[in-house]
């Protein structure tokens, strides 16, 4: 078998597994959501937010303020920007602007996520609540797991998963704020490294050729965008990588499909 055939065989095998009966029902869905959260993301967020808690303390925030930041901002890049600019004594407008820019990724993430929840005619307030709960963890895990969850139960899965990792994040923030646990540096590095690693593995199973090409192009674009315009690097990367990936993917899909 050539490399390519092997890959196709693995993919086919994987898709067959996905095609088995999707999870449905109250208990089964909640169970899956909690297991998926507790298997890794809850712990990763707990440790990451411990780091945020101790940084927030060093910048002069109170414990309850740090916890509320994790709860309501719920986007680490923005939280870090807030803490860093506050620590260096910037003004309110500069802090809020930097935080907002660092979290601007929520716009395309929410747009691409909402329809996958497959809710029937949700009202605006409920949709806003769903959007507030969204984080990169829930986004990536749901994109991966939704094919295995019955469409009618996806919203339940999402809310259960997202609220349990949010709880872990707030708990981690408080513990990080109050504790001065000194772990061995090598262990700390391993723990920091686990977060990008987790996302990389989660996203390796994402379906769709256009989406996969977009991710590869995103990786290729970010070093250039980062060196040219560090504040806007992710937005530039998203628009360039996503647009080219979209165009190429559609061309190929049309070429193969028909």
């Amino acid at each position: 078998m050539t490399m390519r055939e092997q890959e196709t065989a693995i993919d086919a095998n994987f898709e067959m597994k996905q095609a088995t009966t999707p999870v449905a029902g109250d208990r089964a869905v909640m169970r899956k959501a909690l297991l998926d959260a507790l298997s890794l993301p809850a712990f990763i967020l707990f440790f990451t937010m411990m780091g945020f808690g101790s940084l927030a303390r060093s910048a002069g925030f109170g414990a309850e303020m740090a916890a509320v930041a994790s709860l309501l901002i719920w986007g680490l890049p923005g939280q870090l920007a807030m803490v860093e600019l506050t620590r260096t004594g910037q003004g309110l407008v500069a802090i809020v602007f930097a935080c907002s820019l660092a979290n601007a990724r929520f716009l395309p993430m929410v747009v691409s996520f909402m329809p996958t929840l497959a809710r029937e005619r949700p009202g605006l307030p409920r949709m806003l609540l769903d959007a507030q709960l969204l984080s990169i963890n829930s986004w990536a895990v749901c994109m991966r797991e939704f094919p295995r969850v019955d469409a009618a139960w996806r919203h339940r899965y999402y809310v259960t998963f997202a609220s349990s990792i949010l709880l872990a994040a707030v708990a981690g923030t408080l513990l990080g704020y109050h504790s001065a646990v000194l772990l061995p540096p090598a262990l700390v590095l391993g723990l920091i490294f686990v977060s990008p690693l987790f996302f990389a593995l989660v996203l390796s199973a994402v379906p769709g050729r256009a989406e996969r090409i977009s991710m590869l192009l995103g990786c290729a674009t970010i070093p250039v965008a980062h060196s040219l315009w560090p504040e806007m690097d992710l937005l530039i990367t998203g628009v360039i990588g996503g647009s080219v990936g979209f165009a190429l993917g559609r061309r190929w899909e049309h070429g193969d499909g028909s």
Binding site: V111, L203, G218, C219, F246
Partner: peptide
């Protein structure tokens, strides 16, 4: 349009992860 926004999200998230690994700002 929805497919395009999804592609933009994937490119952004992949870029973010790649940056965390290749150009980390943390202790990494």
């Amino acid at each position: 349009f929805f497919r395009w926004v999804t592609c933009v999200s994937y490119a952004m998230v992949a870029g973010l992860i790649f940056r965390m690994i290749i150009l980390p700002e943390s202790d990494l």
